[in-house]
């Protein structure tokens, strides 16, 4: 695999993650627990879709086959999607939405912070642009972790449940793919192991501040495939482009 090909894969991984998370959040529009929070979640959706656009556009350029960010989003099949499994998990309740978002926010803040120093100018630029957005996201979700963790018995039970259920998907997010090693060595992308260590420290800090406990790490094998959830999501997302291939939107 050439450096270009590896970087293409990596941009897909980050781009798809933002795309799918943005989509999940967009499903929350008109479903927030109060209107103010509805608006906040839509902002997050907009930020992640914007990040996906930039990353997938760059991926398309690296690939060199003339595929746009829309082609990549709307015309790939499920097995070609590289997103973290964590972000395709459904919006089971508000606690899941917040827990999923929080786990990703901590990760993305660390990632983008380091990405700013990438030897690849495009990535470095995206890193500093995205960092501002993710920093705000984390502020918001950490606040909710605390409110739910220290709120009522019910909210505590729900947020603990969500964190525990989603925990199994975090190793996949934190583990570098084999093709990433070479990119790390060249200083193009941040060191995944460093991020993983910091991630755990920060997550645990917020969990304990919120009266929650870190779930047991169980040795789960990395997921071998996407979930049914993603298949269904893509069917909906890609419906128009697939049904009317000649149309221009």
């Amino acid at each position: 695999m050439t450096t270009n090909q590896a970087l293409y894969q990596y941009c897909l991984r980050l781009g798809d993650t933002n795309l799918i998370l943005g989509h999940r959040l967009s499903e929350m529009c008109s479903r927030g627990p109060m209107l103010e929070e509805d608006i906040a979640l839509t902002n997050f959706a907009l930020d992640h879709i914007g990040q996906a656009e930039a990353l997938l556009q760059y991926a398309g350029k690296l690939e060199g086959k003339g595929r746009s960010e829309d082609d990549l989003s709307y015309l790939r099949n499920v097995e070609e999607f590289e997103n973290f499994r964590l972000v395709e998990q459904p919006n089971t309740d508000f606690a899941y939405v917040i827990a999923r978002q929080f786990l990703v926010d901590v990760y993305q803040c660390l990632l983008y912070q380091k990405m700013q120093k990438s030897t690849d100018e495009t990535l470095a630029g995206m890193g500093s642009r995205f960092l501002k957005e993710s920093t705000y996201h984390l502020r918001h979700t950490s606040g909710w972790m605390e409110r739910l963790g220290l709120g009522t018995d019910e909210s505590k039970r729900r947020i603990q449940q969500a964190i525990s259920d989603l925990w199994q998907f975090t190793p996949e997010m934190l583990t570098a793919k084999s093709y990433e090693k070479e990119l790390e060595a060249q200083g193009i992308i941040p060191d995944a192991e460093e991020i993983a260590l910091d991630w755990l420290v920060q997550v645990v800090r917020v969990l304990s501040r919120s009266g929650l406990h870190k779930p047991q790490d169980v040795a789960v094998p990395p997921p071998i495939s996407h979930s049914d959830h993603l298949v269904r999501m893509l069917a909906e997302m890609q419906y128009l482009q697939r049904t009317y291939p000649d149309a221009r939107w």
């Binding site: 479903r31 409110r147 019910e154 909210s155």
Partner: peptide, 10 residues
């Protein structure tokens, strides 16, 4: 109705 527990927690 689904948001009630969240508002109560807050």
């Amino acid at each position: 109705a689904e948001g009630a527990w969240v508002r109560e927690a807050a």
